[in-house]
Design a binder for these strands. Structure first.
Lengths: 254, 254
DNA sequence: GGCGATCGGTCGGCATTGTCGAACGGTGCT
DNA sequence: AGCACCGTTCGACAATGCCGACCGATCGCC
C-alpha cells in the first residue's frame, strides 16, 4: 500500500490522543506522546484548529477537541446502516426482555456503541452512544472477538485489564470461552465488567456471514441469570432472535 | 499565520463533504468537488481509511464517514464545558416551561446543537444533539448572530434560504431584527423554520461578556406565543433566567 | 453481446511542502 | 528575583505529498 500521508496520520493520532483523558492537553505533552518536535506538533494543531477539529483554551493555551467533530460523529450515525437497520429491533428487544439494549461494533481494540435503548422504566439520561467498552469483559465484545480471528491477536498484545474480580485475564481462558461462544452462537458475561451487572449478546452478520456487529442486553445479574453464569434461556432466545432479525434486515437491499 | 498544512485542510474538507448528504460519495465526485486530481484525493482517502475516519463500501467502492468519528464526537461532548455546565439548568427549564430545550453554539455558519432535552411528556427518540440548524431562521441562531459581528458578514454571503413563508430572507430585515434582539436580550421565532413551530432563546456568556452559546425552548406556535409574533412573557422570563444561570455557572472555576 | 464511458486504483518524476531544531517572549512556580 | 516551562515563531533543508497519465474492471447503453 503506497503512500499513507504522514501529516494526516499524525493529525488523527492527535485527535485520538485528545479523546483519551477527555481533558485539556498541552502542546509539549502532545508532541512528546507522538515523538514529534514541538514545532511540528504546533503546525498540525494550528491547522486542526482552523478547521475546528480542535479548540484552544485562551487562558491556559491547552488544546481540546473541537465542535466540528460532534457534527461529523452524528453524521456518521445517520449514515450507519447497522444502526438504522437495527433501531426498530432494538426497541422490540428492549420491550420483550425488559432490559436495556446496546448495539456495538469493533473500533480500535474496543467495542463502539452505535445504539443504545434504555430500560423502559428507566429515566437515566446517560446515553452510551459513542462510548467504548472493553472487548474481553463484555458480552458484546466476546461476540466480536469470537468471530474475528485477527482481532484476537490485536487484543493479546494489550494486557487484559482486570475490571472486577471475575474479569477474564488469562488469554487461554478467554480463548476457551470464545470457542464456546462460536459453538453456541451467543455470548454472556456476569460481573466481569461491573459488579452486579451481567449481559447477553449475539452476532449481527452481513449477507455472506461476516460478523459486523453485535446486539445485546444488560442489567442486574440476578435478572439476567437464573444461577451463577447461567443466563436465562428465554432472554438468550430473545437476543438471538433479534440478532437474526437484524442480520436478515441487512440482507435486504432497500 | 504561517504554514497551514494543506493535506490536513483537504482531509477535513473531505470529511465535511462526506457529512453533507449523509450518503455514499464516489472518488471522482469528491475530487471534483474539491478541485483535486483523482490520485491526490485517493491518497488522502486511503489515509483517512487507515485511521478509520472513513469507510469504503466494498461492493460499490464508494466512501462514507468512519466509526472513529463517532467516538471523537462524543469525547468532545464529554469535555465540552458549555454543555456540562448547562445540563442541569436545561432540565429545570424544560420542567418549568413544559417545552423541549436546546443549547446551541456557532459552527461553520450554522447552529450546532450540543444539548437537547425533550418535552417531559414526549417519548420521541430523535435526539438533535450534533445536528445543525440555520442561523437566520431559529431563535438560537438569531441570538448567536446578534452578538457576533463577524458572523453576520459570513452569513450574508450565503443566501438566506427560505424555509417557510415567514423566513426572513431580506438582509436588511434580518439586521433590524438582530438590533431588537440586542436591545431586548433575547430572540424569538415563529414559523420561520418550520410551520407551526416557534421558539425563544437567550445568550449564554463567558466571564467577560463574550457570547459563546444560546439556550432556548421550542414547541407549537400557539403554546409559545399568545398572539402572532408575541411570545408569552412568562416563557421569555424562564429562558432568560436559565441563560443567566448558565452564564453564572460558567464564571465559577470548578 | 460487444463496445464505450466511467469507475476506483496505481505509478513515477518534479517541486512544493511539511518537518525539524534552535531561538523568542511570556507566565507561574519556587 | 530567579528559573523552568509553556506555547509560538522562524528559516533552511530535503523528504514529502502532489499531479497527470496510465491500468483493469465494471456498468450501461447501444
Amino acid at each position: 500500500m503506497p503512500g499513507p500521508i504522514q501529516s494526516i496520520e499524525r493529525a488523527a493520532a492527535m485527535l485520538r490522543l485528545l479523546a483519551r483523558g477527555s481533558g485539556h492537553h498541552g502542546l509539549a505533552e502532545i508532541a512528546a506522546a507522538l515523538g514529534l518536535a514541538k514545532g511540528t506538533a504546533h503546525g498540525i494543531l494550528r491547522t486542526l484548529q482552523r478547521v475546528e477539529f480542535v479548540e484552544q483554551d485562551q487562558s491556559t493555551g491547552r488544546y481540546r477537541l473541537g465542535a466540528a467533530l460532534l457534527h461529523l460523529g452524528t453524521s456518521y450515525l445517520d449514515a450507519n446502516e447497522l444502526r438504522s437497520r437495527s433501531i426498530n429491533w432494538a426497541d422490540t428487544l428492549a420491550a420483550r426482555s425488559g432490559h436495556e439494549v446496546r448495539i456495538g461494533m469493533h473500533l480500535d481494540g474496543a467495542v463502539l456503541v452505535v445504539h443504545h435503548v434504555f430500560r423502559p422504566d428507566d429515566t437515566m439520561q446517560t446515553l452510551g452512544i459513542g462510548g467504548m467498552l472493553p472487548l474481553h469483559a463484555t458480552a458484546l465484545g466476546k461476540v466480536l472477538l469470537a468471530y474475528d480471528a485477527g482481532l484476537l491477536a490485536t487484543i493479546r498484545r494489550a494486557e487484559l485489564t482486570s475490571l472486577t474480580r471475575r474479569t477474564i485475564v488469562r488469554p487461554s481462558a478467554l480463548e476457551r470461552v470464545l470457542a464456546e461462544v462460536r459453538a453456541a452462537g451467543w455470548a454472556s458475561e456476569a460481573e466481569e465488567y461491573m459488579p452486579g451487572e451481567a449481559g447477553i449478546a449475539a452476532p449481527i452478520r452481513m449477507p455472506g456471514g461476516l460478523v459486523v456487529g453485535a446486539i445485546g442486553i444488560s442489567g442486574a445479574v440476578d435478572r439476567i441469570c437464573q444461577t451463577a453464569n447461567r443466563p436465562r434461556q428465554a432472554l438468550v432466545d430473545h437476543v438471538c432472535h433479534a440478532a437474526e432479525a437484524v442480520s436478515r434486515s441487512l440482507a435486504t437491499d432497500n
